[in-house]
Simulated assay, not measured.
Amino acid sequence: MTDHRPALSVLDLVPVRSDQTTTDALRASTALARSADRLGYRRYWVAEHHNMAAVAATNPPVLIGMLAAATERIRVGSGGVMLPNHAPLVVAEQFALLEAAFPGRIDLGIGRAPGTDPVTSWALRHGAGGVSDEAVSRFPEYVDNVLAMMDTAGVGIAVQGRTHELRATPAATSVPTTWLLGSSDYSARLAAEKGMPYVFAHHFSGRGTAEALELYRSTFRPSPELAEPRTFLTVNAVVADDDAEARRLALPQLQMMLALRTGQPLGPGRLVEEAEKAQAEMPPAHQQLMDAMAERWVIGGPEEARTRVSELAATYGVDEVMVGPVAAAYVGTEPGTSPARERTLELLAT
């Protein structure tokens, strides 16, 4: 770990507030990506989640193309593509084209989870049984297939005794950087075995990060693409001019995560005033859960938040921190904007 502040990146789920349409949410995320680009953030990743009222990040390749076209310098990628939902060739074709359109700016982050409910998983597979156990069990093979198909030289596929050439795109000159993502030790082991960069989803719970990173680093095998382990940290962040303001802006997302953890119905993201009204009826046990979650996030004024980010980077031995800017909005905010999310990025980068 170096002495200077870590590089900063962004993770965006393209949140949809109660005052927004999907069009509004996309406009807000496009503006946020432009801010990250202008402020010097290293990369901007979008997630894959399906059938959620509060999340518009359903299709990472489409979002990546849109956001890369709207920015100039920043790397844009997936955090991540849930590979069991997709045929490896489709993923390879999508990201090979993105890399051809934006050379040197595309990251392919790959995950193993379905990213949705069982019904939507079934629909993603054309009604053919959803994300099957086979698709999950063959995940390492599918990762290899994506990498091979994106290779600039293509790959030979043996069919009925003959070898056929297969290329994700006709004349590639570069390939995206491919990362494995995970929230357990499974992907840490696999990334180390394959000599790939790896990210542990610290922002999910804040637990198990040190163990996963140590496993990855201690068992890493160098590959032609990567000589040493490469990783970074993810964390949710809400930064405002003072601590009290940051805590108000964090409340809607904390309530959303509480609902997810306790099996409550999930709706669009609340505005601050809506969340404060709901908070008045919060059971004490739920408040304790929210307080515990907040302790693992970066919530506060600028100096406190920047210090916290640097401390997290030092604790986990990384030189990059990817923040999920989860600040909410007030009643009356222009629907196509997310000023508190942009302010979070500005204050952290100052």
Rank of each mutant, 00 (worst) to 15 (best):
V91Y: 11
S78T: 07
P61K: 08
P6H: 11
T23H: 08
G127S: 14
R34Q: 15
N145F: 04
A328T: 04
A171K: 10
A285I: 04
L266D: 06
A158C: 09
L83K: 00
A349E: 06
M149W: 13
V146P: 01
R261E: 13
S29C: 05
A188P: 02
P335G: 08
G79E: 00
L312F: 12
A25R: 00
R43M: 03
A168Y: 07
T231L: 00
T58V: 13
P103H: 03
L266E: 09
G80E: 00
G317W: 03
R73D: 11
A69I: 02
R296D: 10
E141W: 06
Y198R: 00
A53H: 05
E346M: 02
E93P: 03
A100G: 07
A329T: 08
L266S: 09
Q279V: 00
G317C: 03
R248N: 12
A128V: 06
Q253S: 11
L97K: 01
D243E: 13
A100P: 05
A135T: 01
N59S: 15
G263M: 07
E245W: 06
T58G: 14
F102H: 14
R341N: 03
A294I: 03
E193T: 03
A123N: 06
T71I: 13
G263S: 10
V331T: 11
A191E: 05
H164C: 12
R38F: 07
L190D: 04
P170G: 10
R207A: 15
M149K: 05
Y316M: 07
R125A: 11
E320T: 12
S338H: 09
V131W: 01
M150D: 00
Y44A: 08
G109H: 11
T178D: 04
H86G: 11
M290H: 09
L124A: 01
L166H: 05
V238I: 14
R167C: 04
A101H: 04
L226I: 04
E346W: 02
M149Y: 13
G301D: 15
N85S: 05
